[in-house]
Design a protein around this nucleic acid. Structure first.
Lengths: 249, 249
DNA sequence: CGCGCGGTTGATTTAGATCAAGGACGGTGG
DNA sequence: CCACCGTCCTTGATCTAAATCAACCGCGCG
């Protein structure tokens, strides 16, 4: 484990740091054990609604996806966002107290592991098991952080935290002062993610902009000017963040 | 899988339904593979602060625990509650953007699996692997439901959902009309769980009581009079709930 | 007995939702 | 090329659910 002590929950993986992305290796492993079924989807598509192999585990090869739950009145909460190199388990989409839905935020390619092969894969390939364990720990960890902000923080903290989480996870952060990246989401969906109305997302981004910590360019192009202050607003321990930035660099 | 189609995320396990609790079997499996280290703690204790084997996986044999995260200013969010038969992975307690803490809500007994043995256990015992996979799916699923309510629902819905979740998970619900059980939490911690202030928890419980759906007796003894209406308030699909109650009975 | 924790209740404040009206695009069809 | 439309963003005005502040009660306990 080369990443011990760093923010492993943000999903930055060893392989990617070493220059060889984990999902390239994973693909090989999948190919050895199952017929690797690869599917592609355009942006804005819904996943798992296909009648057929709905009970599959997906592995994201490229693109962003969002899993959300919604209430009868249409209110929606995005529960997690999946980036390349992460697993999506559609078991979570059924048997629940409310409707779950997985949608693509960009065009995506996914590897599909039929449900029947999944347990076999875990049992036979320790590296996949270990990777999956780590992935699950990362998901739980970042969901916990988000719950904390959802329950106890201001709109500014929620937005700031989300910017940092997505920035770190998309590996956009270099060692430099300012960090720039694109979030393929509307302010509406950012609101569904942070538990805010789209109107308030807009206002809050405006505040952060006026404070000089970020600037936004048209449709969700984010430029972070002062990551330390942003982390402070996000109520992230700045020392931890600094350590993470160093180890990620 | 005898529970397919039912609310598996509430953690009701097949073994328990069959009369032989899963954690009794699990203990045997643990004993076969590792020296089963059992620890006990009083109510209100903190876990994992012991310097020694902090990097362990715990398995709850009896008692309730709460995992929480907190902000620098003392604001706290309970992220999940663990009941007997569930795993606690202390990996989640380190390397994070904010402090995590696991506390006992009642006296507990835990089985401790040292971190080193954990992966071996998963690889060698398919039934533990399968169980752990299901447990993880259940945790993610109920955390998602809670996030939905945290982000998008009223105080009444959050409280109602929590009562139903805890009631179902503690297996207190029989087939009858009214259901009675005890929640070993103060209104303060219920607030930390639902993202509400303790004052508002009190008022909201009062509202539910005046509406005749529940009554509370002194310190968190809950009696549910009208579970259908409570589920409606919790914005749970009543058909799903009904199915669950039937299959659990 | 008195202290402290947890629950209750009331008064006041506030963060964010909601409602509403424009404005800026980017795509589409004439 | 331009007219039109829909989607998304922006900004202002108003409303409201829940937080906060504050006082008090009841009770278990040293």
């Amino acid at each position: 484990m080369t990443d011990s002590g760093s923010f492993s929950q943000f999903g930055i993986c060893d392989g990617a740091r070493a220059g060889r992305p984990w999902h390239a290796e994973a693909r090989l492993a999948f190919q050895r054990t199952t017929s690797l079924h690869k599917i592609e989807r355009a942006a804005g598509a819904l996943l798992g609604m296909e009648a057929d192999a709905a009970k599959a585990v997906y592995f994201v090869l490229s693109g962003w996806l969002a899993s959300s739950k919604s209430l009868r009145n249409g209110q929606r909460q995005i529960v997690d966002i999946q980036l390349p190199g992460e697993f999506i388990d559609t078991r979570l989409s059924d048997m629940q107290a409310s409707a779950t839905q997985i949608e693509t935020l960009t065009p995506v390619t996914l590897a599909v592991v039929p449900r029947g092969n999944w347990m076999r894969l875990l049992q036979e390939y320790p590296e996949i098991l270990a990777r999956h364990e780590r992935d699950v720990a990362a998901v739980l960890s970042r969901m916990s952080e988000r719950m904390l902000r959802l329950g106890k923080s201001s709109a500014q903290a929620r937005i700031a935290y989300t910017l940092i989480e997505l920035g770190l996870r998309s590996s956009a952060f270099g060692p430099g002062e300012s960090q720039e990246f694109h979030i393929p989401m509307t302010q509406q969906s950012l609101g569904d993610f942070t538990g805010l109305s789209s109107v308030h997302v807009c206002r809050t981004l405006g505040q952060l902009e006026r404070m000089g910590v970020v600037s936004t360019n048209g449709h969700m192009d984010i430029l972070i000017h002062d990551i330390e202050q942003l982390a402070a607003i996000a109520e992230i321990d700045v020392a931890l963040l600094r350590g993470e930035l160093n180890s990620a660099a």
